[in-house]
């Protein structure tokens, strides 16, 4: 599978500018239909690329292949791709969850540790309330999930369109960056403390983060 993707990356360089734009939109749009079998997806993308290269060589237009409405054609392709089994989707879901927790915990631990041990800015241990922690974690995961879905939707929407850079920067910056970040901050700031408490040394967070990440890897391998 990786070799097919690598071959695609190489061959794509042979496309002229116009064909490259339309093909890469097609590629992005079809790959973002994440519930589809990856093997079939990459194979049909390669067939389309080979075909487009031949058309280009013969001096024919990409519309010979994709018709007058490339998005509709892409939808047709996606509609015929076989669905992957649910087990794989579930494994990928857990992979995402643990990668997110891993990176969040690791970065938190690393920054706090540097501030604390390096600059004496923070106490070297932190008290967590199990109730608060669980609610915040679940809510954060929910937000992260919404952001990921939103980003996928947004990118699919921009395929086959010319979106102005300013608009793109504003939308992505605010909707997918600033807004979720503010909600995260508000969650941790305003959530009242409840449930039993545990106090741990900050460097443990780094280790816990790595554990989550490794767990994410396990799910990735099972998918």
């Amino acid at each position: 599978m990786q070799s097919l993707i690598a071959e695609n990356n190489e061959k794509r360089k042979l496309l002229n500018k116009e064909n490259k734009k339309i093909y890469e939109d097609m590629l992005m749009y079809v790959r973002l239909s994440y519930k589809k079998s990856e093997a079939e997806t990459e194979e049909v993308l390669m067939e389309l690329l080979d075909h487009l290269l031949i058309l280009q060589h013969e001096g024919k237009d990409a519309s010979e292949l994709f018709g007058t409405d490339p998005k509709q054609y892409a939808d047709e392709i996606v509609g015929e791709l076989p669905q992957v089994i649910t087990k794989k989707v579930i494994m990928l879901f857990f992979m995402g969850v643990f990668y997110f927790l891993g990176v969040a915990t690791f970065v938190n631990g690393l920054v706090s540790s540097i501030l604390s041990y390096g600059f004496g800015q923070l106490e070297s241990n932190e008290t967590y309330y199990i109730g608060t922690l669980s609610v915040n974690t679940l809510l954060s995961l929910g937000i992260a999930f919404l952001v990921v879905c939103g980003v996928i939707r947004y990118i699919s929407w921009t395929c086959f369109k010319n979106v102005s850079k300013v608009f793109e920067l504003l939308v992505t910056g605010i909707v997918f960056g600033t807004l979720p970040f503010c909600i995260f901050l508000a969650l941790f700031y305003f959530m009242p403390s409840f449930g039993p408490s545990i106090t741990i040394e900050l460097y443990w967070l780094i280790l816990i983060g790595i554990c989550f990440y490794l767990l994410g890897n396990v799910f990735k391998r099972k998918a």
């Binding site: 079939e40 049909v44 067939e47 075909h51 058309l55 292949l65 054609y73 392709i77 015929e80 791709l81």
Partner: peptide, 23 residues
């Protein structure tokens, strides 16, 4: 027929196991 129209059909025929594709 438009050249592109064969690919959705090839995908469907594979899904229905009427044809088999091999790289």
């Amino acid at each position: 027929v438009s050249e592109g129209s064969i690919y959705p059909i090839l995908l469907r025929l594979q899904k229905e196991k009427l044809i088999q594709g091999e790289m």
